[in-house]
Amino acid sequence: MKYLILILVIASACTDAISVNIRNGIECYETYQNLLLGKKVGVVANHTSRVGEQHGVDFLRAQGVDVLRVFAPEHGFRGTADAGETVKNHTDAATGLPIVSLYGKNKKPQPADLKDIEVMVFDIQDVGVRFYTYLSTLHYVMEACAEQGIPLVVMDRPNPNAFYVDGPVLEKECVSFVGMHPVPVVYGMTIGEYAKMINGEGWLKGQVKCDLTVVPCEGWKREQPVALPDAPSPNLPDSVSVMLYSSTCFFEGTAVNEGRGTLCPFQVFGHPDLKDMPYSYVPRPIKGMSMTPKCAGKTCHGMDLEGEYGTILGMKRLNLVWLLLAYEKYEGKEPFFNALFDKLVGNTRVRQQITEGKTEEEIRAGWREDVAKFMGVREKYLIYD
C-alpha cells in the first residue's frame, strides 16, 4: 500500500509542494513476511506506525502475523501522553493486546516482558534529532533483544531532518535518556540506519550485537525533507515544529518557554523577563500537550518563528541566533540555564561560550572537527542516496 507524502523544496524564497509516493518499511510486507509468519511477535510501536489509515499492529495481524505483545515508548502506544508523563503497563482497549511501557521506571524490556517472543518488530517515526527519546528506546530494545537472542526487525521510515548534519557531538559526561550516543544534535540518518550504527559501533552494553534486519522504505532520498502524515508526538504537531525542533529545543534547558502551553510548540519562545522583543503570548496548560508549561499564565515576550521554516531548510544547519538573542535580552533573577541544557547540547562548553559572549560562528567552530569525524563513521551505515 502506498500513500502520499509532501516533499517541500525551497526555490529562491518560495516553497513549492511536490507529491511523491513513498512506501515505509512496514508497507513492504513482501520483503519481510518470511521473518514473521509462524512466529510469536512483539511490536514496539506508537500512533505513527501506520499503513494508510490502518495502524501497523492491525496491518500485521491482518496478514496473519501472531502479535503477542506491544511495547510503547514515551507518549504511549496511542501517542496521547504528555512529554515526560509516566506511561504504565495496560491492555489496549481497541486490540485487547497487553501494552508494556518503555517510558517510566522501566525503559528497557525485561526478560519477563520478552517471554515467548520469537522476533521483535520496531516501527516508530523518528525526527532525526539526538534528544528525541525514541532513539534511546531503540537502543534499549536492541540491547534486550541481543541479550535474549531475539532477532529484531526495524521498519524504516523517512527522516524529515535527514538533509543535513550539525551540532555538537555528545560527550560521555552528558549521556542521559535524551542523548545516549556520540552523535551530533542532527545526525542525518533514518532510524534504520541509526540502528545499524548502534550495532556496528558496539554501543550496546558489553558490546553485544543485535540480530538486526532493517526493512528499507522505498521512493525516498535523503535530500527530500518530508511532511509527516502523523504528528510524531503531541508537541511536534506539524512540519514547522519538526523543522525548528533541533534549534528551539535548547530552550528546554533554560528559563525561557519554548512554546509548550501553546498550539505552536517549538515555533515560539518567550519569557516575562525578556526585554524589547516583538512578540508576546501566554502559555497555558493544554491536555495532552503541556499540562505544566514554563511561565504558565504569564505574558511571555519573545519571537514567533513560524516563518523560519525556510531558514533551516535553506541553511541546512541548526540556528543558534535565537538562543543567543534570548540570553542577551534576559533580565530575570533566576538563572538562565538549568541542569538539562548541557545534556541537550551534549557538552559543557557551549553554555560557557554563551556566557562569555561568543558569537554563533565562534561556537559552531568548536564542533566542526567532531562532526567531520562523525561523518566518516556515519558513511558506513547509510542505506539511501
Rank of each mutant, 00 (worst) to 15 (best):
L204C: 09
I363E: 05
Y384M: 08
V215Q: 02
A326L: 04
L244H: 08
G253K: 02
R284M: 15
A83Y: 06
P111K: 05
H301R: 14
A72P: 12
F77Q: 02
S49Q: 00
K333Y: 08
M289F: 11
V65T: 03
L68N: 00
G188A: 09
L204N: 10
V119T: 13
L35A: 10
Q33F: 12
C174N: 14
D238E: 12
G179A: 08
L382N: 05
T48G: 03
E218D: 12
V226R: 00
G206L: 03
S246Q: 14
L102M: 09
P283G: 11
E27W: 08
L324Y: 11
G259I: 03
G192W: 01
V121K: 00
A62E: 15
K343N: 15
L97V: 07
Y330W: 12
H181D: 14
S176C: 13
E147P: 03
E171G: 09
L36G: 01
S233L: 02
Q125V: 09
L340F: 13
T80K: 10
T91G: 02
L344H: 06
F251M: 05
Y134G: 01
E201A: 07
G202Q: 06
V119K: 01
S233C: 14
K221Y: 12
S136H: 04
S12P: 06
V282K: 09
L4Q: 13
K329E: 06
G104R: 09
A339S: 15
V377Y: 04
T48L: 00
E334K: 14
G76M: 07
V129Q: 02
G307Q: 14
E193A: 03
G188D: 01
L60N: 01
L340C: 05
E308T: 14
E306W: 05
Y134T: 10
V165F: 05
V178M: 10
S246N: 11
H55G: 12
S12E: 15
E356Q: 14
M155Y: 06
G297P: 07
I198C: 03
G200F: 11
A93S: 13
A162S: 15
K105M: 12
D370V: 05
G38Q: 11
E362I: 10
T262N: 07
P109K: 02
G192I: 01
G376Q: 11
V141I: 08
A255S: 14
Y384Q: 04
A326M: 08
G366Q: 10
K298M: 15
E201D: 07
N46E: 07
Y32W: 10
C295M: 13
Q110S: 07
F374L: 01
R78D: 12
F251G: 02
Y103P: 02
F266K: 02
Y245L: 10
L305I: 11
G96I: 05
K108C: 14
L204S: 06
Q54L: 15
M277A: 13
A11P: 03
A326K: 01
G314L: 09
K196R: 15
V87N: 06
T213Q: 12
L152I: 15
A326R: 04
G167F: 10
L102G: 03
P73E: 08
V119P: 00
V214C: 03
P232T: 03
L228F: 11
R50F: 07
K275N: 07
